[in-house]
Design a protein around this nucleic acid. Sequence first.
DNA 1: GCATTATATGTCAGATATGACATAACATTC
DNA 2: GAATGTTATGTCATATCTGACATATAATGC
Lengths: 110, 110
Amino acid sequence: MHSNKRKRLEAKGWKVGDAKKFLGLSPEEEAYVEIKLSLSESFRAQRLRRKMTQSDAAKLLKSSQSRVAKMEAGDSSVSLDLLVRSILALGVSGKRLIQSLSTRKSSPAA
Amino acid sequence: MHSNKRKRLEAKGWKVGDAKKFLGLSPEEEAYVEIKLSLSESFRAQRLRRKMTQSDAAKLLKSSQSRVAKMEAGDSSVSLDLLVRSILALGVSGKRLIQSLSTRKSSPAA
DNA sequence: GCATTATATGTCAGATATGACATAACATTC
DNA sequence: GAATGTTATGTCATATCTGACATATAATGC
């Protein structure tokens, strides 16, 4: 694993440092986690771009501040469905959502 | 709505023809459905490319033939998570999965 | 320092997705 | 048209996700 990727994951609380578990992830598990993290970061970036607080976003999404925090933290209790629907609800088009998956640094599509 | 898109959705059992409900979908709801359909079709294409039956795929995914059928039918009971994890489990890389979302005809990214 | 605001973490009852099963509908070969 | 193989549809108990709440931990301004 490249160190910058490791850093990204550690920063999200995946505890890569001491986790045989993570290091043992199969390629498909790793790709899945990367897609989720990428969406998490997209969501946060879009929320901040719109100068919304987590509570503002929660209201828009008819969710709660705590769930928004978990979404942005890449918490394992958050589904891809919720992430995708939330990003779309912020006004990002399907096209741009997908572009963001392809164009990010350390992208799952890299 | 373009007639080719309508055709795609009708073919998947979304009953667009008589559905005010669908025609009334907001842009984000429509984008979400399009992403799901796109993944459904990707999954089926990949399964067939590997010359697997739905039962073969179910075994690989530790799921069931009926759920695979629902995945491919774009059934609303199937999550994005399951679709994405299943496509990855067939051996498609994260990169190619995302590319397929961008490059298809009538893509959600179009 | 201490309010105030924003974000993070833990828990849980209710909602939704899941694999499994039964069975139906289609297709292909004989 | 019977047999066989494949895919589709309906249902259900269990597993997983969800919003909500409480509360903790930053961060910012005074």
